Every structure is written in structure tokens, then in C-alpha cells.
Simulated scan of single mutants.
Amino acid sequence: MNNTDQLLIGFKFKGLRLANDLTPSEVAAELDISKTYLSLIENGKKVPSQKVINKAALLFNISVESFQTSSSAIDDLTKLADEASLADVITAFELILSKKSK
């Protein structure tokens, strides 16, 4: 697993935790890991074991495959980031999120 994949899995964990309004303590307890280990995962410094990924999939009610990000999606986002200003990217994501929450 390369560093980008490791970061993406960590960001996925953090995004799911935040989207589900859970604290690091709550998630760590549900996954039977320490808060420190969860922090290392969320910051892309550690790769979660398959057991932890399986538990997270159950906790967040998603498929295990959801933790895999396609390289084409990353390529598309990289292209967007290269072509747009940070303000435009943030605006686009905020709009998308606001539509999803309705």
C-alpha cells in the first residue's frame, strides 16, 4: 500500500466518524482500538488491519470495499485541484454537502 492509499483510508475513517457525529473515543471503543491508534489511522500514519476495517464497515454501515478509493477518482480530484483555486474547491464541496444533507 502506498502513502496516498494510506492517507485516503485515514481520511475515510475521519470523514465517516465526523459524518456520524462520533467522537474519537466512541469510535475507538467500538473498533476495540486505542484513541491513539485511531488518531494514527486518521492522520495516515498507520494502516488499519483488515479486522479494524471490517469492524469500521459494520459501525458505519458501509461495505468494506468503500475503503478502497479508485485511482480515477483521485486523478479527477487532483486535476480539479490543479485547475481551480482552493476557494473554488471548498465552495464546490460545501455546495455538494449542503445538497446531500437535504
Rank of each mutant, 00 (worst) to 15 (best):
I62F: 06
L31H: 02
I62K: 02
L40A: 09
E94F: 07
V47Q: 12
V47L: 13
A87G: 08
Q50M: 15
E30N: 01
K45I: 09
L86A: 11
A84R: 11
V47T: 10
Y37S: 14
A73V: 11
P48M: 03
A92S: 08
G44S: 08
G44D: 06
V52E: 11
S70D: 13
S70A: 13
I96G: 09
E83I: 02
P48H: 01
Q50E: 12
V64C: 10
A57C: 07
K79I: 05
K51A: 14
E65M: 15
L40F: 10
L38N: 00
Q68G: 12
A92H: 04
E83P: 02
E94N: 08
A56E: 02
K51M: 14
A84T: 06
D75F: 11
N54L: 14
E94S: 04
A57E: 05
T36H: 09
N54M: 14
A81Q: 05
A92Q: 04
V52Q: 07
K46A: 12
A87E: 13
S85T: 01
K46Y: 10
D32H: 07
A87R: 06
S71L: 11
E65T: 12
N61L: 07
A81S: 07
S70F: 10
L38K: 01
I62M: 04
S71M: 09
K45T: 05
K45E: 13
A84F: 11
I53H: 04
S63N: 14
T36L: 15
K35M: 13
Q68Y: 14
N43A: 12
T36V: 14
N61H: 08
S66K: 11
